[in-house]
Write a protein that binds this DNA or RNA. Structure first.
Lengths: 153, 153
DNA sequence: CTTTACGTTCAGTATTGACAGAACGTTCAG
DNA sequence: CTGAACGTTCTGTCAATACTGAACGTAAAG
């Protein structure tokens, strides 16, 4: 029976989201939408599959939509909202996380201003962060563009 | 007065850690250890500066030590434990976060196994994740090595 | 026009986890 | 040997938040 393996996958996604500081339910919903067949599921379907309330599924789908990981699809049934994984969603997702990473870039600058008249040895603590995120901020987007093109083309 | 700007910096670090799904206190302690002079502070000092309890500072320093962001230093005073920012800590930190990112790589593989007999169109949802993290996992470490050498050498 | 099914939003509940306080062990000073 | 200062660990408490249930609005069906 494949059911338990599917459940396991969904649980892993849940755990992943938790470690990223995101709601577990978002991981579970995304987990379903990554392995389900057909790929589009209605909100009611998701409630059924995950044994969760309409409200939590509704708010979760909204979150995932804002994150660019899922999208609404034309519904085959009137009055039902269908969702599916959004192609290219992973790149958007990582771009957002990257943005979070490099926000430390600004904080490091803020700190360096505080230490502007201090010994370079003291400033190195923050200089290190500043330099690293400069490199990452510069290089990673092009790296992601490469991935994007590979998939899109 | 520079006090308020320092407080602002510490609060920004706190917020940053929160967004990364880490304890705020860890951000605050690190914030202090990034701008303090002298760079090494005792646990008692940190309690004083942050107006926090010994217990929370103690657990937080342990966490930050495990994360490779701070380290204990030889104490100038007996029976007191001194901490400072650990040179190269930022790279270690990002390496750990990267590890978290690419753990999705394994989850994607797990999912692809579930869909091994399915249509490629269905598998593309996970294939996209798998490919992206492959690239990141391959390229980012060398990028970080570059940063490390720049600073270390 | 009425009823029903669906999704959204709001208020309430439960759970998680961050932090404080207390108790303990250890080490230095007197 | 006694006492005090320090750090760690354990337990309890409080706050944040994820999730549920109920009320509401809406649109289709009969």
């Amino acid at each position: 029976m494949r059911y338990y393996e599917q459940q396991h996958f969904i649980e892993d996604m849940s755990l992943y989201f938790e470690q990223m500081g995101l709601p577990r339910m978002a991981g579970r919903v995304l987990g379903v939408l990554l392995i389900c067949n057909p790929p589009a599921q209605s909100l009611t379907d998701l409630c059924e599959i995950l044994q969760a309330s309409k409200s939590s599924i509704s708010t979760t789908t909204r979150l995932l939509t804002e994150m660019g990981l899922i999208e609404r699809t034309p519904s085959p049934v009137p009055r039902q909202v269908y969702f599916q994984f959004k192609p290219g969603g992973w790149v958007v997702f990582i771009r957002q996380r990257l943005k979070l990473w490099v926000s430390l870039h600004n904080i490091a600058e803020e700190g360096l201003e505080l230490l502007h008249d201090q010994d370079p040895e003291l400033r190195s603590r923050l200089q290190e962060a500043h330099d690293m995120f400069s490199v990452i901020e510069e290089e990673l987007p092009t790296l992601l563009d490469r991935v994007e093109k590979k998939h899109g083309g």
